[in-house]
Simulated scan of single mutants.
Amino acid sequence: MTIPVLICDDSALARKQMARTLPKEWDVDITFAANGAEGIEAIKAGQGEVVFLDLNMPVMDGYEVLESIQQNDLPALVIVVSGDIQIKAHERVKALGALDFIQKPVSAEAISHILQEYGILTLENEGETTDEDMIEVDMRDACQEVANVAMGRAADLLSKLLDVFVLLPIPNVNVLEVSELTMALKATEENPTISALCQGFIGAGIAGEALLLFHDSSFNDMAKLMGLSNPEDEATEIEVMIDTGNVLIGAFLNGISEQLDMQFSQSHPVVLGRHCTVNELIHDNSAKWHRTLAMEINYRIEDHNIQCDLLLLFTEDSIPTMNFKLGYLLD
């Protein structure tokens, strides 16, 4: 009997990877949804007896989808597939009725194991050919999905160190001119002043700088979570920035290196500016950056007044190598 399977993820690359990892001999009819609202409609239409669900999506995220499935008693077995690997994320989706959790990037072995463990996988002599090769993935989408997975690795490490839950956004990925950087930093508009840390990185054919933009209103709460005294002291503020940068930048770059199969070397962190505006920061350092591939992630900590932006600026010369590396994920 053919089983209706729904793959719900805002990333075309993630949808394609997910479809490819399903057992070829599994008799399924696959439907794709690019956000949670589309996913719910597909489930209501009988197209999602088994659902592979992402968490970070526009319109309606994975948590909201699980809530809707519970509230409306919809017939769906949900397996969450996400880059957000925080323990508390696992606990929350299980409490909302998810069958299990698989971390991105997915593997065929992990999928097959879970399907068999829960008795979902029914093997036939011939499975239907899936149409994952019909899914078109552009490089920006691929970069965004790579950033999504790396973002989750960094959040998981921060959450373990501070015993908190890190709220994750959808990564913002664009090729920008330096003049466009200020406009790209939407999350900083509500925060008049920031302090910034910069750390260079370089790999085989890929180089750039990571910026940690720390909202000034966040210092007190962050210092307390780290067990530091005198949160308003200049030395304490710098220590908070460097410690946070070591965690987020290091883990994020490791997440990218794992996916692209390469290693990065990092320079020592440098304080770029303290208690300044984004305009001032970009203007004062504009000579360092030209046209760039930018990945922006706004990290927030639940129940705390803590917010910081991680911005990775890859040099224009890095883009061909990035495209080459990403090509392996698309093939």
Rank of each mutant, 00 (worst) to 15 (best):
D141I: 02
I114E: 10
N72M: 15
G227L: 07
L167A: 10
K16A: 14
V137N: 05
E237H: 13
N254H: 05
R140D: 08
M139W: 10
R291F: 05
P192F: 05
P75G: 04
L181Y: 04
L162K: 01
D138P: 12
E177F: 14
Y118W: 12
A98W: 13
F252H: 12
N230M: 09
N172A: 05
I79E: 03
E189P: 01
L161I: 10
Q144G: 10
E180H: 02
L212D: 06
H283Y: 05
M222I: 04
H113V: 13
S257M: 03
E180T: 02
E180F: 01
W289Y: 10
T129N: 09
I87R: 14
E302N: 11
T193G: 00
I40E: 03
I85D: 12
V247K: 00
E38A: 14
M241E: 06
I242C: 06
D284A: 15
P23F: 07
L157V: 13
T236E: 08
P23H: 12
S318E: 15
W289L: 08
G119L: 03
L330C: 06
S112R: 12
G83V: 00
K224E: 13
I114T: 13
L123I: 15
F165W: 10
A34R: 15
D100C: 08
L312T: 07
L123G: 02
V50M: 09
D61P: 02
E302F: 07
M241F: 02
V137L: 06
I242S: 00
D216R: 11
R20L: 10
K325E: 07
H275I: 15
E189F: 07
G127P: 08
G227F: 04
N305Q: 14
N230L: 11
P192L: 06
G36H: 00
S217N: 09
M134V: 02
M226T: 03
N230V: 05
A37M: 08
S286K: 11
G227T: 08
A14Y: 02
Q17I: 14
P231R: 04
D27W: 06
R300P: 03
S112K: 11
T122Y: 06
L253R: 03
R153Y: 09
V80I: 11
V173F: 10
N298G: 13
L313D: 00
S179G: 07
N220P: 00
D317P: 00
F52H: 06
V80Q: 07
I249A: 03
H283A: 09
K186R: 08
V173I: 13
M57K: 01
L168K: 01
A210C: 05
G205T: 01
T130A: 13
L181C: 02
T182Y: 01
